[in-house]
Amino acid sequence: MDLKLKVWRQKNPESPGGLVDYDATGVNPDMSFLEMLDVVNEGLIEKGEDPIAFDHDCREGICGSCSLTINGIPHGPQKAIATCQLHMRHFENGQTVVIEPFRARPFPVMKDLIVDRGRFDQIIEAGGYISARTGSAPEANSIPIPKQTTDRAMDAAECIGCGACVAACPNASAMLFVGAKVTHLNSMPQGRPERDRRVLKMVASMEEAGFGNCTNTFECVAACPKEIKGEVMAQMYRDYVKALFRQAIRPE
């Protein structure tokens, strides 16, 4: 099948970008979306043009590198998958496909479809960890943790850090990403000692990065390739205010 692509091309963070038209011809419906772009790129290279730059790595939906907004939806029209798991059979012959990067001020476009998501790392650096020095751990089974607790933590921990939540949010808010990490760590008994400073510092870091605010539209949840639930944000809001109050009464 043949497709008309409109792809965002941008030389570097400073220069302005724009949509450029390309024809993707002879697309096999069994191709993945990124393989389709690979083929387009091979054609561009042969013609001596600069191929379209996009982030990708594992191509099995777990590394979180791929970050395309396809026809206005991060990771494309299929639910609960990353861009690399999207296959061309979900498109129609002759369809126009608009491909843009994930857009948000904290995710500056570096080239074409590649954005810098380093702000996510900074949020984790601010508190997305449990301080456990290597060698200091007690025997693994010394703290029983209810299965429900672990399951809930695992639901949140599945986040692949791709940034689709930010990209989908009308306000470019990162609440789902931060909420997932806060919920994962704060709900485990091991994470209790640091829960207040964790949520305060992570939220502070998120705000400093310039992400927008949440207006509860749940677009993030709909776009999430791992179907992280909106509940994680509710838990973060709760934990945040509790931490503020505790901080006010008994400053750390």
């Binding site: 960890y129 449990i130 456990a132 290597t134 060698g135 200091s136 751990a137 007690p138 025997e139 693994a140 089974n141 703290i143 029983p144 943790i145 209810p146 299965k147 672990t150 399951d151 933590a153 695992m154 921990a157 994962h184 760590l185 485990m188 091991q190 994470g191």
Partner: peptide, 23 residues
């Protein structure tokens, strides 16, 4: 191998558990 599990549990890795709460 046993120290690894201890350490990873301390880091908060949500390993699968049984209903009794053990790994």
């Amino acid at each position: 191998s046993t120290n690894i599990i201890d350490h990873c549990v301390a880091q908060g890795i949500p390993f699968a558990r049984e209903y009794g709460g053990y790994l």
